[in-house]
């Protein structure tokens, strides 16, 4: 079930955005403002009795690509799904700690998860366009939130931003399901950015795609970071190295072992455990 299905078009989302958060350390990066758009403090996640994340504290910088890497079961996708409260959909999941989007704790009682998910869009591993036209896929979130602007213009803008417009502009009324896998994934990205979110979460967005389609997605992520904060989970460490500004390494036990500039992580990690993981000395 996708979060749009329960959307409330009357929800005011402005309280979740447009306010600065505590600044990050002054690190040299190729872009971004340096301030934190997401600030996690002591995040613990359990699925029933199983600890999935343990005491995660990190600041995700605005306007950059942050990659979450680590072996299977390390909790990186769980953390991603904490950011837009997708874990709320799992009955046994229990989250402790504070996770701020700008200055608002997204786990505060007064936060509407549906409104949150318009500010924090998500793209999944497998392309999941709705069984609707290309146009309506992109317009879906806009219509639900009661967007009062020019929907068609916003659809075009989103498809252009997702590097798909030139390929589909003559077939906007055709089904999104008729597109190739790579095009479907870019359609999903267009759908995610149409409501103009602050953050785009991506959970292995290219893992089901061939190398050419993967390259297009990677180029697109680079472009998206000019406008949005992107957080991506990937099992492909070379992909993380290619496309991200910051990398967070989660290891077994749901522990965030190291978080820093991507070039530093891949050239000279501080942690021997991270060194052993990224060099493939253990899985």
């Amino acid at each position: 079930m996708s979060f749009e299905d329960t959307a409330d078009p009357t929800t005011d989302t402005e309280s979740l955005a447009d306010s600065p958060a505590a600044g990050l350390d002054d690190t040299t990066t190729r872009r971004g403002t340096g301030r934190a758009v997401i600030a996690a403090r002591g995040i613990d996640v359990r699925y029933g009795d199983t600890q999935a994340l343990s005491d995660i504290t990190m600041d995700i910088p605005e306007g950059m690509v942050t990659a979450l890497i680590g072996p299977s079961g390390c909790g990186k996708s769980t953390f991603l799904r904490c950011i837009n409260r997708m874990n709320d959909l799992i009955d046994t999941c229990h989250v402790d700690g504070e996770l701020r989007l700008y200055d608002k704790n997204v786990y505060d009682d007064d936060v509407d998860p549906v409104a949150l998910r318009r500010k924090v869009g998500m793209v999944f591993q497998k392309p999941n366009p709705f069984p609707k036209s290309i146009h309506d896929n992109v317009a879906y979130g806009l219509n639900i939130q009661g967007y009062d602007g020019d929907v068609d213009a916003r659809v075009e803008e989103s498809l252009r931003a997702a590097a798909l417009w030139d390929e589909v502009k003559g077939q906007l009324d055709e089904s999104g399901l008729a597109l190739s896998g790579g095009q479907q994934q870019r359609l999903c990205i267009a759908r995610a950015i149409a409501p103009d979110p602050d953050v785009v979460l991506m959970d292995e967005p290219a893992s089901a795609l061939d190398p050419v389609a993967t390259s297009k997605i990677e180029d697109l992520i680079d472009d998206l970071a000019e406008e949005y904060t992107v957080v991506i989970v990937t099992h492909n460490m070379q992909q993380a190295a290619r496309i991200s500004d910051k990398t967070a390494v989660f290891l077994t036990g749901g522990e965030l072992v190291e978080f820093g500039d991507t070039d530093a992580i891949f050239e000279n990690p501080d942690s021997e455990r991270v060194e052993n993981y990224i060099t493939g000395k253990f899985g």
């Binding site: 460490m237 891949f266 000279n268 991270v274 990224i278 060099t279």
Partner: peptide
């Protein structure tokens, strides 16, 4: 092999 970290250096 796309080496990283100590292997890359």
């Amino acid at each position: 092999q796309q080496p990283v970290a100590g292997d890359l250096r």
